[in-house]
Simulated assay, not measured.
Amino acid sequence: MKNTHLNENKKYNHLLLENKVCVIVGGASLRSIGYATAELFAAHGAKLVLLDLVMNAEIANEVGTAIASQIGHKPDIIYLQCDIRNTSDCDKVIEKAVAHFGTIDCLVNCAGIVKSEGMLSITDEGYDLIMDVNLKGTFNICKSALKIFTEKQAGVIVNLSSLSAQRGGGLVGGSHYAASKGGVISLTRSIAREFAPMNIRANVICPAMIETSMLDGLSEKQLNDVISGIPLKRVGKTIELAGTCLFLASDLSGFITGATIDVNGGIHIH
């Protein structure tokens, strides 16, 4: 059989997301995975829709200025406030994104909250908040994006789960956090299976110990104890997680769907 794979790609281009419209949830903090992903995607030619519960004009200016300083030009971004716990909010921001850019091509959901506490200390309100943001919120924004993806018969979803979902907690976050992130894995696999015939891919990333505000609650001793158990002997950088998002969002991963990708420095080799 003749090898034609080189001809199937019209060209090789270092801009992996040139003119792709990518929705990124959770990018208001410059220390966040969402921000690092936005910066890297912009560097690769993407047009961006940045969603966050706390998004406002001041944060938008800060994020846009930071990205511009890194990539050397003003990024093509719209900034929208969104509470992903609310289905109407999710539908409205996706509609605004389509109205502005004409379509959306990719959704990367980096939003999430964490709280470390023993199971017997978790209140009904605490449980509901974690599940509503991490799992219900992921469901809501995926559903809103899928309405567009099914119409165009194409699209990519990248969801962030956690190592806690794979090993039953043990690092940061209580049992409600681990359960919510376990649900994100199952949800993503379900989306991948249901929507693959429509040329829609969905994959999930399980990070561990990334340099974000989620580590702020750990003492130096606690952090060092965790690092001692990581084969690479360090925590991960947000740009390293963003690189995985870039791979999964781009055509380089065109035959990957329903996958769970570990970004954990080797702490959970399984």
Score class of each variant (00 low, 15 high):
161 S>D: 09
228 S>N: 14
151 E>V: 14
136 K>S: 06
229 G>A: 11
160 L>G: 10
209 M>F: 10
211 E>M: 01
171 L>I: 14
155 G>Q: 04
208 A>P: 01
203 N>R: 02
179 A>T: 04
142 C>W: 00
198 M>A: 07
173 G>D: 03
143 K>H: 11
165 A>E: 04
156 V>W: 00
187 L>V: 07
149 F>D: 11
154 A>F: 06
210 I>P: 01
193 R>V: 15
178 A>Y: 01
219 S>Y: 10
143 K>Y: 07
210 I>T: 03
177 Y>D: 06
221 K>D: 15
165 A>Q: 01
192 A>P: 04
140 N>P: 08
148 I>Q: 15
196 A>F: 10
175 S>I: 10
163 L>P: 08
208 A>E: 02
164 S>V: 02
188 T>I: 08
230 I>P: 05
161 S>K: 00
157 I>P: 11
191 I>H: 02
200 I>Q: 02
226 V>F: 15
207 P>F: 01
197 P>Q: 09
149 F>H: 07
136 K>Q: 05
169 G>Q: 07
135 L>Q: 00
196 A>L: 12
136 K>V: 09
227 I>C: 12
148 I>V: 15
166 Q>N: 14
202 A>I: 00
216 D>G: 12
142 C>E: 03
199 N>Q: 07
214 M>T: 08
152 K>E: 13
151 E>K: 15
182 G>I: 06
140 N>Y: 09
143 K>D: 08
189 R>S: 12
143 K>L: 12
224 N>L: 13
139 F>C: 06
159 N>A: 11
153 Q>H: 14
183 G>C: 10
179 A>C: 12
180 S>R: 01
216 D>K: 10
226 V>N: 14
144 S>T: 04
225 D>G: 11
175 S>C: 10
173 G>L: 02
152 K>A: 13
159 N>Q: 09
223 L>M: 13
177 Y>E: 07
229 G>R: 13
172 V>H: 06
148 I>Y: 08
226 V>L: 15
158 V>H: 04
196 A>S: 13
152 K>F: 05
166 Q>M: 13
204 V>K: 01
154 A>K: 12
193 R>D: 12
178 A>M: 11
169 G>S: 11
201 R>S: 08
216 D>E: 12
138 T>M: 08
142 C>M: 10
226 V>Q: 15
187 L>K: 01
203 N>Q: 07
184 V>Q: 02
193 R>M: 13
227 I>D: 13
170 G>S: 08
193 R>E: 14
195 F>T: 03
159 N>V: 09
145 A>S: 14
134 N>G: 06
146 L>Y: 05
209 M>H: 02
168 G>E: 09
